[in-house]
């Protein structure tokens, strides 16, 4: 039986986990995101900074294979996302990436435990109740395991969303504005928790935010290029 402490990935894998080459995206003739060449090494904690409208969400959608870039390529775990057929892209995302959103997107009809169980079932094809209990305990929600999302506070909900993203043992955890709705104390706790759990599982962390309060926590920070008119 695995516990979250043992859910680690090898940090000796060759090459970057995520690699962009000449990457940019245009919508209605206007470039909405441009990053050019960029790499993210396995086990790194990277922060993507930028104001609203700078293309952070577009970049995350491209990294996770939800959007095909108009120029350049993005590779995750050595596979070029845009070259894969939709089903293979879904499978790569399912196997490799855990996502955390600002609005949580927990399934409201399911308890915290069942939200994690569903994610595990969909990604791994089985449910490991002990691992789920361990992960819920690690994010400090053991007393709220049976609660439904609407019964959780914002901070508790964020922790549940992180637990769901990590329960499938993804190599890459992508978080989009995970702290925007939190006060200073809870924002700091959230980043601590993400670092803690990502380190424990060996996951690589990519956080996109315009929240300057957490910037100093990341050694690896980068900005998207300013949008340019076509």
């Amino acid at each position: 039986m695995s516990s979250p402490d043992t859910l680690t990935h090898s940090k000796t894998a060759q090459g970057p986990l995520v690699e962009a080459r000449g990457l940019s995206h245009a919508r209605d003739g206007r470039t909405v995101m441009a990053i050019g060449d960029w790499q993210l090494q396995p086990g790194a904690h990277a922060l993507l900074l930028g104001p609203s409208g700078s293309g952070k969400t577009t970049f995350i959608n491209i990294v996770t294979g939800l959007l095909t870039p108009s120029h350049g390529t993005i590779s995750v775990a050595g596979e070029v996302m845009s070259a894969l057929p939709p089903a293979a892209r879904d499978a790569l995302r399912r196997r490799t990436i855990g996502l955390v959103f600002q609005t949580l997107r927990l399934i409201p009809a399911l308890s915290v435990t069942d939200n994690l169980a569903l994610a595990q079932q969909l990604a791994l094809g089985h449910v490991d109740r002990a691992a789920i209990a361990g992960m819920i305990d690690r994010v400090g929600l053991a007393h709220r395991a049976a609660a439904q999302p609407r019964q959780l506070s914002q901070g508790e909900g964020q922790r549940a969303a992180i637990a769901r993203a990590l329960i499938t043992r993804p190599r890459l955890v992508v978080a989009d504005e995970p702290t925007s709705a939190l006060d200073d104390t809870n924002a700091a706790r959230m980043i601590d928790l993400m670092f803690d759990v990502a380190d424990a599982t060996g996951a690589t962390l990519l956080v996109a935010t315009h929240d300057g309060r957490i910037a100093h926590r990341f050694a690896n920070r980068f900005n998207l290029m300013a949008p340019v008119a076509a």
Binding site: R94, L118, A119
Partner: peptide, 16 residues
């Protein structure tokens, strides 16, 4: 709609 999109993101196939 958001839930369904999230289900797709966390691995639910179209058939699922």
């Amino acid at each position: 709609e958001g839930d369904m999109a999230m289900l797709r993101v966390i691995g639910a196939s179209r058939a699922a």
